[in-house]
């Protein structure tokens, strides 16, 4: 289980708190939605959970173990802008092989053409690049996936395609997913459970009608 207990965060002692006393948990194989108005530190919270930032107070753990500092992190974050998440001077196949190389049928499931592999990132469109960024994280070492507005820049069809492939994979491999988004219909469609940071306590709303 991925847990964040009593998370507080600020960038420096004299600056205001960005995250205050947040506690949340994601079970393996579960899809959890995270909603909050702008300025609630959703992205910061996502970065804390994926180990990009260290909490000022509190702790993040996977199965009661703290996140590794040096090895492959079992919690992977997918950013909103794929353009910034890939090295512009690398070719696509090099980008895909940076973590644990994904399997061929994974690439097919995400609709990644073999012709893209020899290109540079600026030669692919945003939707194509986001598939690459996702494929990079879908391997046996990833236990939890945090999607920070992962499909906010994509058209409806591509969004549905990508989520279908991701949820197929995470269901089959018991990977927990945290969906951070503004898009209420999308979150409702995808998630087993929705956390609303704006509400005082983390009340968990169970939503029925989850996509197959």
């Amino acid at each position: 289980m991925l847990t964040g207990e009593g998370l507080w965060f600020r960038y420096a002692p004299q600056l205001p708190w960005v995250i205050q006393a947040q506690t949340l948990a994601v079970e393996p194989g579960e899809v959890v939605g995270l909603m909050a108005p702008s300025g609630f530190g959703k992205t910061t919270l996502a970065k804390l959970l994926a180990g990009y930032l260290a909490p000022t107070k509190g702790r993040v753990s996977v199965d009661s173990q703290p996140l590794p500092r040096r090895r492959y992190c079992p919690v992977q974050l997918v950013f909103q802008n794929p353009e910034l998440a890939v090295n512009p001077r690398w070719r696509i196949d090099q980008i895909l092989r940076e973590g644990h190389p994904p399997q061929m049928h994974q690439l097919d499931a995400l609709g990644i053409h073999s012709g893209w592999l020899t290109r540079y990132p600026h030669e692919l469109s945003g939707g194509e690049l986001q598939r690459i960024a996702i494929a990079r994280t879908l391997n046996s070492q990833t236990r939890y996936l945090i999607a920070d507005e992962m499909t906010a820049m994509l058209d409806a069809n591509t969004q549905a395609l990508i989520w279908q492939a991701v949820l197929d994979y995470t269901r089959a491999h018991q990977i927990g997913v945290l969906v951070v988004s503004h898009d209420w219909p999308l979150v409702r469609r995808l998630c087993d459970r929705i956390l609303d940071l704006a509400a005082d306590q983390d009340h968990c709303t169970l939503v029925s009608g989850v996509a197959e």
Binding site: G111, G127, E128, T158, Q159, A160, L161, P185
Partner: peptide, 24 residues
């Protein structure tokens, strides 16, 4: 029609495949 159907508030069913690239 596919775009409309694939909205999460509608069916959330996409058409598979990708837009052809300008080279092909």
């Amino acid at each position: 029609q596919a775009l409309w159907r694939s909205l999460p508030q509608n069916d959330f069913v996409p058409v598979p495949g990708t837009q052809p690239s300008p080279e092909a």
